[in-house]
Design a protein around this nucleic acid. Structure first.
Length: 957
DNA sequence: GAGTTTGAAACT
DNA sequence: CAGTTTCAAACTC
């Protein structure tokens, strides 16, 4: 019955995934078939995703959650568990959701119902399909469906154990099957369960699944935010897949591998799923049939097809890596393997344990899991990939103000879409690296953990990860399985893991923070320490940055987690409803200033310092490394970056020199060095990402065109003209990371980068770079750059090129330029005034860029430098050039868009062909801003109410 | 590590 | 819109 239809649907979905644009139609059709309600979801998604980024993410995740929730809710079994376990977290979540807006609740319920229905239908179909185990197509389809099936994750571990499936890809197909089974077990619980569950049991021989699913369900219920709707995801295609992966990672990490969250996890689970599926098949059904060969084919095809279908490819990659990335904060482990390892520890810790997870606990666990693995994030290690995870983790740590680079990374990560792209890149790289890579990743993650883990928790994690890694080689499957299972299941799932995680979280996160007194992680991602706001107010740097809290965060009762995407989204919307610019980049270049000063970047709202004289980080302007402007209400301003009222016309190249105070320069330098370091670390991380991106990016061609960057060289404008803008940094960072990732591959790259950076600084590039940090976000977007050439402040590209040339990296300049262009393009895409948007959007473009810039890989080492330079230049360029325009165009909020550079927009109109192509591409792919405002508008009131409720609860806590 | 200071965010 | 309170980061000891 369903199977035929389902298959068709899957085919459709796959096709859709193949061609992102098409995805929607197939997905929609599929959804429609599944359940009438879904369309509504789709609408939500549509709203959220117009931009791709934040909004989409939110929507998607929430949907998924809703599905899960609904499914769970529907099921009596689940409900009981949910009520008991969820307890606090759920209550809080409910407060948020319920309290705020009844309509919302109703909607959520509807969603849940629909989702559950959809999931069920999907599950059925999938189960059938699984039996048939069609192949790549199915596999591809799986992602969307898998979301619904999250529960499979739990099972997956077992499967993995039974079957060693180092390759996530191979698992992909199987994963779908597994998911189906899993879903049936959890969600359906009734129909599909019997077969699927039996199979699972056979494989695992454990009953934990059932219990786990229940837990998950509860969590999911509480977590309304999650969107699991597979359908929607399918429609979203790449974005969804990424999100899914995130979620899965998060869930897996959180849960420690237990199942659950079928819908939610499914996306995340993909890697796990794949493995699981394989295992499942092997053990239960197809076992040999699907086999690795299939997987291999899948993988190969996926990438190829993906080139066409980007989505598919990404998904595959995502599955492996994305999850970790998704977890971002949680899993440092970049690759799925790492994730697995991470998850494994938890599972190993105590799979049997059914921990009642309150939301907070779950979240915390999820974070921890995420983070624990993420430790790699810290990553300064070559494996830098790990570091990103933190960012990737969806954690939105990155804040505009602080370290732009880091922020950028985190943002990209957090932004489901972008993040996904990044993850995909990573995953791709991982995939490319293959199992060996996985092992490496594991080792890396371990290393990262060790490094990061100052606290016992970390140690534990590291140990677990190590164990996992060790196990993996011998029996990767089992290890992976464990890890995935928990991770996929989300937090609640694995009680054992959760407990462990919780312990770790409680102790480790705080400890970590304590250890790292700084609010920033090694990765540069920000950490928050919110105690009363639940990370749902602007007080929370993470939340304010549009990023999910990471493991490293020491926040209490955090709701800024993927599990609570809905809540987060609602809250954001609510805040935005009050202040549309609340999430807009705080640092913006003033058009006035821009003309004269590259460092014209200023704090959007200005500071109100009374005692700090704008010489301490209390001052947001100072913290952002930007000068105070007329908008500041500060008293006795002594901002080294520019005092209120005094404009520091930063001449081209002058940039920092202009800085009035030597101290300011020093600071800048220090910050710059820090950034460089960050970059270096990130590069390592990024290397993988780049790698992935290369694989993934269909856009590569456009990027190659970007190579024309050389064309740009025209830009006499050198870095000096760059305006510092955190945002730009972010965007740049994301791209940078990507580019850097490939470099990272070369462990040496980081060091080299540092050296090169020094050299550059000597050359004068240093100033530029420094400014880069400050460069306004707006500028980050390339549009201007493209067009700008004429006006040119500087095309980032040209600047970059010049820089690169100067640095003696000439040989690689082309690549570098390409990279820069790529970055620029992404930046343009990013547009979104909101950081989140940038993050989300940027990742995608970067990916494409990366793909285009395969040449980079060769240059990896240089890339690192290039990346840095590019980042700088891009920022400048972005600042001066296009960001604004793009923002205006894309961002519904209009927050930043307009202010910074109207004239730039003009330039943007005339962007150069290559850049244009890239930009256009991005724009299409990423409706940058739409998400924020639109979403906000829809749910503002409810969000507010939810927020207030949550806050109240949090306070109580 | 605990406590204080600071200024933004939130609230009234 | 202004004043007050709350909050979390930054800072100090």
């Amino acid at each position: 019955m369903d199977s035929p239809e389902i298959r068709k649907i899957k085919a459709n979905t796959t096709s859709s995934s193949d061609s992102p644009p098409v995805q929607d139609s197939p997905v929609f059709s599929y959804i429609n078939n599944l359940s009438p309600i879904q369309p509504v979801k789709a609408s939500h998604l549509a709203q959220g995703f117009p931009g791709l980024n934040s909004p989409p993410l939110v929507f998607t995740s929430p949907r998924i959650n809703s599905h899960r929730n609904t499914s769970f809710l529907k099921r009596p079994q689940y409900q009981p568990l949910s009520s008991a376990e969820k307890s606090k977290t759920q209550d809080e979540a409910k407060k948020f959701l319920d309290g705020p807006v009844d309509p919302k609740i109703t909607q959520l319920h509807m969603r849940l119902i629909t989702d559950s229905q959809d999931c069920e239908t999907k599950i059925r179909v999938e189960s059938q399909q699984c039996s048939s185990s069609e192949g790549v197509d199915e596999y591809l389809a799986d992602p969307s469906e898998v979301d619904c099936v999250d529960s499979t994750q739990s099972a997956s571990p077992c499967l993995k154990q039974s079957n060693n499936v180092p390759e996530t890809f191979t698992g992909s197909k199987e994963t779908t099957l597994y998911d189906n089974k899993h879903n049936t077990g959890t969600d359906l619980g009734t129909e599909a369960k019997a077969p699927s569950e039996q199979a699972k049991e056979d494989l695992e021989g454990k009953q934990t699944f059932d219990a786990k699913p229940v837990k998950i369900i509860e969590q999911s219920d509480g977590e309304l935010p999650y969107d699991e709707c597979p359908n929607i995801e399918s429609g979203l295609s790449i974005d969804n897949a990424y999100k899914r992966e995130y979620r899965q990672h998060l869930h897996d990490q959180d849960r420690g591998g237990k199942h659950q969250d079928d819908c939610d996890h499914t996306p995340q689970s993909p890697p796990g799923r794949l493995q699981i599926v394989q295992v499942y098949e092997n053990s239960a059904e197809n076992v040999g049939a699907i086999s690795k060969g299939m997987i291999g084919n899948m993988i190969l095809h996926a990438p190829k097809a993906r080139s066409e279908q980007g989505g598919m490819h990404r998904r595959c990659l995502q599955f492996e890596e994305a999850p970790p990335c998704a977890t971002g904060k949680r899993d440092c482990s970049l690759s799925s393997i790492q994730e697995v390892n991470n998850s494994e520890p938890p599972s190993s810790m105590g799979e049997s344990k059914l921990v009642k997870l309150s939301y907070a606990d779950l979240k915390s666990t999820s974070k921890r899991q995420m983070g624990t693995p993420l430790p790699p994030r810290c990553g300064g290690n070559s494996p830098s990939t790990v570091p990103k995870p933190s960012g990737i983790g969806l954690h939105l740590n990155s804040i505009v103000n602080a370290a732009p680079l880091v922020r950028g990374t985190t943002r990209s990560i957090k932004l489901a879409d972008h993040y996904i792209g990044v993850q995909v890149m990573k995953s791709a790289s991982v995939m490319s690296s293959h199992l060996p890579d996985n092992v490496r990743c594991r080792s890396i993650s371990l290393n990262m953990v060790e490094k990061d883990s100052a606290g016992p928790e970390d140690r534990d994690e590291s140990e677990t990860s190590i164990a996992a890694s060790s196990a993996v080689p011998s029996s990767p499957h089992t290890v992976v399985f464990e890890g995935h299972g928990p991770t996929h299941e989300k937090r609640g799932f694995d009680a054992e893991n959760i407990d462990d995680y919780e312990e770790c979280k409680q102790s480790s996160p705080k400890k970590k923070r304590k250890k790292t007194s700084s609010t920033k992680d090694s990765d540069g991602t920000k950490r928050c320490n919110c105690k009363k706001t639940k990370c749902l107010k602007l007080y929370c740097d993470c939340f304010a940055a549009g990023v999910y809290c990471a493991e490293s965060c020491a926040c209490q009762g955090c709701f800024n987690i993927t599990d609570y995407e809905d809540t987060v989204l609602e809250t954001r919307q609510h805040i935005e409803s009050r202040n549309p610019l609340a999430f807009a980049p705080k640092i913006v270049q003033h058009e006035e200033e821009i003309q004269f000063t590259p460092s014209s970047a200023r704090h959007k709202r200005g500071c109100n310092c009374k005692k700090s004289m704008c010489l301490k980080k209390y001052c947001e302007c100072y913290q952002a490394n930007v000068g105070c402007s007329s908008g500041c209400r500060c008293d006795g301003c002594k901002n080294v970056y520019g005092r209120k009222g005094e404009y520091i016309p930063i001449e081209h190249g002058v940039g920092k020199d202009n800085i009035s105070d030597k101290a300011g320069k020093e600071r800048i330098e220090s910050t710059f060095h820090e950034k460089l370091e960050m970059v270096a670390t990130k590069k390592d991380i990024l290397s993988t990402e780049l790698y992935d991106s290369h694989n993934l990016t269909p856009l590569a061609p456009s990027f190659q065109c970007s190579d024309h960057a050389n064309n740009v060289p025209k830009s006499p404008c050198l870095p000096t003209s760059y305006l510092p803008s955190p945002e730009s940094d972010l965007t740049i960072i994301s791209s940078y990371e990507k580019s850097t990732r490939s470099p990272l591959r070369h462990s040496e790259s980081s060091d080299i980068l540092l050296e090169t950076s020094k050299e550059l600084s000597d050359l004068g590039s240093y100033n530029w770079r420094v400014d880069y940090d400050n460069i306004g976000i707006v500028d980050t977007f390339s549009p201007r750059c493209d067009a700008a050439p004429t006006t040119c402040h500087i095309t980032p590209m040209s600047d970059l090129c010049s820089m690169a040339m100067a640095s003696s990296t000439s040989s690689k300049t082309s690549d570098w330029t390409n990279a820069s262009q790529v970055q620029l393009c992404p930046g343009s895409h990013g547009l979104s005034s909101d950081s989140s948007l940038h993050r989300r959007s940027s990742p995608v473009t970067p990916m494409t860029r990366l793909g285009g810039t395969k040449s980079f890989q060769g240059l990896d080492f240089e890339n690192g430098l290039y990346d840095i330079l590019q980042d700088d230049t891009p920022e400048i360029l972005k600042d001066s050039s296009t960001p604004i325009r793009s923002l205006k165009v894309s961002s519904p909020n209009k927050k930043r868009v307009s202010p910074p550079h109207s004239h730039n927009h003009e330039l943007g109109a005339s962007s150069s062909g290559a850049l244009r192509s890239g930009r256009k591409f991005i724009l299409k792919a990423v409706p940058s801003f739409p998400p924020l405002t639109p979403c906000i508008g829809s749910k503002g009131s409810s969000i507010i109410q939810n927020m207030s409720n949550l806050q109240d609860k949090g306070r109580k806590k």
